[in-house]
Computed example of a mutant assay.
Amino acid sequence: MTTALTLSGSIRTGSLNKQLQHAMDARLRAAGVAVSTISLADFEMPIFNEDLEPDNVPHAAGQLADLFRSHDIVFIATPEYNGGLPPLIVNTIAWLSRQKPSPFRHAVFGIGGVSSGRYGTIWAQSHLRDSLSKIGALVVPTLLGVGPASSAFAEDGSVAEKAVDGKIDQMVKELTHFSRGGI
């Protein structure tokens, strides 16, 4: 069975990116994928600093790398901070990129994000795609930019906007098509 790991680059209460993560969880499950939903809050890592290596690499980095390696699909919902990636995602990628074997070379990656603006984290997603590609990750073509968030989700958390719904369906098709688990 194909497996997926989903996470959000926002750990705050009420995060819209967590809402997108959960919408992707539901859609992947409906497609027959076994989904593991995680919070980066459960993987504490100090700000990346090479001086901490090799003796003080956080145990959480190894645990998270193992999760990436053990899943066929990884979906990352990222917010956008000042036109770029949030520090949580940057730090997570920095620590994971030091793990051997690379946790980025097994799974196929999907990226998305929610913002209050019209561009739906497109700059952050572009940066994330570039970073992941440079470290060997295969990222599916569809970018799941959701904005403005005020009209994208219904009060119950479900996807309200048909365009967003269609993008989620397209990404699920790409993720399951390109994954090693293959449905």
Rank of each mutant, 00 (worst) to 15 (best):
H22Y: 14
A4L: 10
I89S: 00
S39E: 10
E161Y: 12
R180P: 06
Q125M: 15
S10A: 11
N17G: 10
T13S: 13
V159E: 02
E155M: 04
A137H: 10
S133A: 15
A30H: 12
S131C: 15
A26V: 09
G14Y: 06
A30S: 14
T78E: 07
I168Y: 09
D51Q: 04
Y81S: 05
D51T: 05
V164G: 03
D72C: 01
N56Q: 14
T37I: 13
A152L: 03
G157P: 13
F43P: 00
P87M: 10
D55G: 13
W123N: 15
W123R: 15
T6G: 05
H177T: 14
H71N: 09
V90H: 10
A60R: 00
S115E: 02
T176G: 12
L96I: 08
G113Y: 10
V159P: 09
G83F: 13
K18R: 14
A31M: 03
S115D: 02
A160C: 05
A34M: 07
L128H: 01
V114T: 10
G181R: 01
A77R: 01
Y119M: 12
V164L: 07
V164E: 04
G182T: 06
D165H: 07
S179C: 06
S70L: 07
S179G: 02
G181S: 02
S116L: 13
H127Y: 14
I89M: 01
F104Y: 12
H71C: 01
G112W: 06
D25F: 09
L52Q: 08
I183D: 13
L67F: 03
W95R: 04
T37V: 15
S36L: 12
D72Q: 00
K134P: 06
F153T: 02
S158C: 06
Q19H: 11
V146K: 01
W123C: 14
N17W: 12
L132Y: 14
A26L: 11
E80G: 05
D55F: 12
G136L: 13
E53V: 03
G14K: 02
